[in-house]
Design a protein around this nucleic acid. Structure first.
Lengths: 207, 207
DNA sequence: AAAACCATTGTACTGAAGTACAACCCGGGA
DNA sequence: TCCCGGGTTGTACTTCAGTACAATGGTTTT
């Protein structure tokens, strides 16, 4: 079998736009144990977990790049596909030109994404990455050692009683530390404290 | 002025690899007020905030795609550039072939990134946000539309009263939705719901 | 039409969270 | 020595969250 483009579908034949982009395109067989492909194009099914599907074809294709095709591209689905390790995520009805474009990018070691998905990736990462790194010590700065311990426990979902047992102190003392932390961090309750500690929200007034 | 590739540098002339990739390439003038370009390639300065620079050329080029070129590509710099809205981020000394590759991708509405940067994006996002972005449908799957709305509000730190006002319903109704959500998601209170919605913890038993 | 699900709301209750106003102990610095 | 800050705890109180036990009306499915 020559190394060529392999399209994996759920029974569907090769579409005309795929064929047009890659005349030698072949259909992947679900039952196959190995696959010699330049690129594996996986048409995502509408339902079910796509991660195993992608992983499976990655293995079978000996780590050849896998591109996910979706007839209803959604950012969420794209995220899942990326986590599974695809090298690209694009519309199943993309034009032959775009498909060839994707192929070139992927073969050069790049990753092909739509604008929307990428922006979401960047936005969310940009929001969540800096906090743990930068601001993680931020909220803790104005707190005492004990207050930080209690705050961390709260932020993991523990109740006052549980924290008390964990730290071998009274529930009353836990409340005392919490009240102090609330005041210092300008939050009103344990939930907002949790958001702060977990980097979901920002500090109001930098102490 | 014909629409062509415009390279923006800090006084540096057009490099040979740029010229080779795009023979009609032109230098962008910092003082210009507008610019008719297919793609604007901005060579990032070593120091200073690159965001205004990128934004400026996006405006001047009437939202033509902007690609950032960096002689010392770093993931952090790439992140900043992406947040600023660039459609690509690659090495300033990239080969003409790669540059053309980038151009094609960008012109088709794609985004061009190096493997490293993209992987970091995905990795960090997958760690920090897999829940909000990916599993967002996860926890939300078993909930009704209304329950999801309330859950999201709770997860942002709102009180029952605030949510009630926000949704124009009674506090009692908010409690009803919450109770249902707790039951379905196997959590005991709003704080653990928050952790789930914000992707800090995992779903216990997929319903 | 009956069943099932959803959204909505009510009253009343329990319990946890959070605050007010304290007190005590301990170690370090003025 | 006295003061101060941190850690600890107590009692009493208010407020909010959450549950129990309901009911009503609308929509969809059977």
């Amino acid at each position: 079998m020559t190394r060529t483009h392999v399209f994996v579908t759920d029974g569907e034949p090769i579409r005309s736009n795929w064929r047009e982009a890659f005349p030698q395109a072949q259909l992947g067989h679900a039952g196959a144990t190995s696959c010699e492909a330049i690129i594996v194009w996986v048409l995502l099914p509408y339902t079910g977990d796509i991660t195993p599907l992608i992983r499976q074809w990655q293995r079978m294709a000996c780590d050849a790049p896998v591109v996910a095709l979706s007839d209803e591209p959604r950012d969420e689905e794209g995220m899942v596909a990326l986590r599974a390790g695809v090298s690209g995520y694009c519309n199943g009805y993309a034009s032959p030109a775009v498909l060839q474009q994707v192929a070139e990018t992927v073969l050069q070691g790049g990753v092909w994404l739509g604008q929307s998905l990428l922006q979401k990736l960047v936005a969310t990462t940009a929001q969540n990455l800096p906090k743990p790194a930068v601001a993680s010590s931020d909220w803790a700065l104005s707190l005492t050692e004990r207050e930080v311990m209690v705050a961390r426990a709260v932020a993991s979902g523990a109740s006052n009683k549980e924290i008390a047992d964990q730290l071998n102190i009274t529930e009353r003392t836990v409340k005392a530390h919490l009240t102090a932390a609330f005041e210092k961090l300008k939050v009103r309750d344990r939930l907002q404290l949790t958001l702060l500690v977990n980097g979901i929200t920002e500090l109001k007034a930098p102490s």
